[in-house]
């Protein structure tokens, strides 16, 4: 059986074949920044058990922090993945830029004497 070819399709869409041709990736007039219809974005951090730090697990939209916390519980801890949750407005995060990666992290690159393995220790010396 050789059906009419129908553009390109792929199974890569997880739940099965979806078209890859003729599918737009944005609307004709994408909303301008500041004119977003979406609620603000929050980043979600979960402490999986006592004694561990909170770890970033994902993000979600919510109208305010209280709703963000409730939704984060439903989305990210449905299987007891955590004992504590943080939600942080994504807009409040200041990040280093990947463009200046080399220059920004450079000062640490030539200071290998900050690691214990830098030092020569005589054979047989223990607890050091």
């Amino acid at each position: 059986m050789s059906p009419e070819p129908m553009g390109d399709l792929t199974a890569a869409g997880g739940h099965g074949a979806v078209p890859t041709e003729g599918v737009p990736t944005s609307t004709p007039a994408p909303p301008a920044a500041g004119d977003r219809r979406e609620w603000p974005l929050f980043e979600v951090f979960v402490r999986s058990r006592r004694g561990l730090s909170h770890t970033h697990v994902g993000s979600l939209h919510a109208p305010d922090a209280a709703m963000a916390l409730r939704n984060a519980r439903d989305v990210y801890t449905r299987r007891q993945e955590g004992v504590s949750l943080w939600v942080v407005p994504a807009a409040a995060i200041t990040a280093s830029s990947p463009d200046e990666k080399d220059a920004f992290f450079d000062p640490a690159a030539d200071k290998i004497y900050r690691h214990p393995t830098f030092y020569d220790i005589p054979e047989g010396v223990e607890h050091l």
Partner: peptide, 21 residues
């Protein structure tokens, strides 16, 4: 991209979902 944009594209049939459903 904005989630609302993607939902528009789904609702207007311009983006698809798996045909199994």
């Amino acid at each position: 991209v904005d989630r609302s944009e993607l939902l528009d594209l789904l609702h207007s049939g311009r983006q698809k979902y798996s045909s199994i459903f």
